[in-house]
C-alpha cells in the first residue's frame, strides 16, 4: 500500500515506528552508557554521559564472572548442540519432506506436541536421572537435552528447505543407482545449506541465552555457562551496577554482532513456520 499514501499518513507512521524503536533501544542504550560509569555517577543520573570512560568495569566483570572459563563453556555447548541438532534434524527433515509413509503424520504430530510440552513436565525425573548417572555438570549431556527440545522446531524449518529442492534431482540420482544416504548427502545437503545456517544461528542463539536448563544441570564453576555465571555475579556482593552492565554488554555482544551481520537469516529463522499464508 505504498506510493498512494498521503504525506501526513507516512509522517505519522514514521513517528510511531520511531517511538517504538526508541522503546526497544532505550534500556539497551542505558546498559551501554552506564557500563562505562562509576557507581556514584550512575546514582547521580543514569542518563548522564560518563565523565571519563571506566573500562575497568569490563575487566572486573570479566574477572568476577570468570568469563574466560564460562564463555568457553557456552561456546562448547553452542557448538555441540548445533552440531547435534543439524545432524539428527536434517535426516529427519529430509524423510518428513520427501517420503510419503502413513506413520510420518504421527511422527510430525508427536514432534509438534513436544514443542509445546512445558519443561517442568520432564525436568524433575530428568534431573534426578542425570544425577543418578553422574551426568550433572556434563556439557555434552546438556547439549543432548537441548537437542531434544530444539529439534522439532528445527526439523519443521529445515523441512521447508528440503521441500524446495526439485524432486527430479532425487529421482535422477536414484535411477543412477544412488543409495538413500548418497541422495541425502550428495544431492540434498549441498542445496539445503542456507536452511542449515539459519537453523544453526537460531539454535546457537537459544543455547547461548538459555537459563533454566543450564542453571539446573551445570552447577559447578568448571561447567557453568556465561549466562549462569552472570546471573550468579549479579546476585551476590554489593551491587556494582557499572560492572554488571559491563558484564551484560559482554554476554550479549556475540549474539548482537551475529544478529547485525546475518539479520536476514535471523528474521527468516524467527518467522519460519509461524506465518500461515
Amino acid at each position: 500500500m505504498n506510493m498512494l499514501e498521503s504525506r501526513n499518513t507516512v509522517i505519522l507512521s514514521y513517528f510511531i515506528l520511531g517511538f517504538a524503536a526508541f522503546t526497544a533501544l532505550f534500556p539497551l542504550a542505558l546498559m551501554l552508557l552506564n557500563s562505562l560509569k562509576t557507581v556514584p555517577e550512575i546514582i547521580a543520573s543514569p542518563l548522564a554521559p560518563p565523565e571519563q570512560l571506566v573500562w575497568e568495569n569490563y575487566a572486573n566483570a570479566w574477572k568476577h564472572s570468570k568469563f574466560s572459563r564460562t564463555f568457553m563453556n557456552s561456546a562448547v555447548l553452542v557448538f555441540l548442540t548445533t552440531a547435534l541438532v543439524l545432524s539428527t534434524g536434517s535426516l529427519t527433515a529430509y524423510v518428513l519432506a520427501r517420503k510419503k509413509i502413513k506413520t510420518w503424520a504421527l511422527v510430525t504430530a508427536y514432534l509438534l506436541a513436544t514443542t509445546t510440552a512445558p519443561i517442568q513436565l520432564f525436568l524433575f525425573p530428568l534431573y534426578f536421572g542425570f544425577a543418578h548417572l553422574g551426568l550433572i555438570n556434563n556439557i555434552f549431556a546438556v547439549s543432548v537435552v537441548y537437542c531434544a527440545i530444539y529439534s522439532p522446531f528445527s526439523i519443521m524449518l529445515l523441512r521447508t528447505y528440503f521441500l524446495a529442492v526439485p524432486k527430479e534431482l532425487e529421482e535422477a540420482a536414484l535411477v543412477d543407482g544412488a543409495t538413500p544416504w548418497q541422495v541425502f548427502s550428495k544431492v540434498y545437503l549441498p542445496l539445503v545449506w542456507p536452511g542449515m545456517l539459519t537453523v544453526a544461528l537460531i539454535i546457537g542463539m537459544y543455547t547461548w541465552n538459555e537459563f533454566l536448563i543450564a542453571t539446573t544441570f551445570l552447577q559447578n564453576q568448571e561447567s557453568r555457562t556465561a549466562i549462569v555465571s552472570y546471573f550468579l555475579l549479579s546476585g551476590q556482593y554489593e551491587t556494582n551496577w557499572g560492572e554488571l552492565m559491563a558484564g551484560a554488554v559482554l554476554v550479549v555482544m556475540p549474539i548482537i554482532i551475529l544478529f547485525i551481520f546475518l539479520q536476514k537469516k535471523f528474521i527468516d529463522g524467527i518467522t519460519g513456520g509461524s506465518v500461515k499464508g
Binding site: P27, N209, M245, V252, I256, I270
Partner: peptide
C-alpha cells in the same frame, strides 16, 4: 528484534538496575 535476541537474564538485570 534486539530485545528478543538478548537473554532474559540480561534484560531482567538491565531493567532492574537501570
Amino acid at each position: 528484534l534486539f530485545p528478543l535476541v538478548i537473554s532474559a537474564v540480561i534484560s531482567a538485570r538491565v531493567w532492574q538496575g537501570m
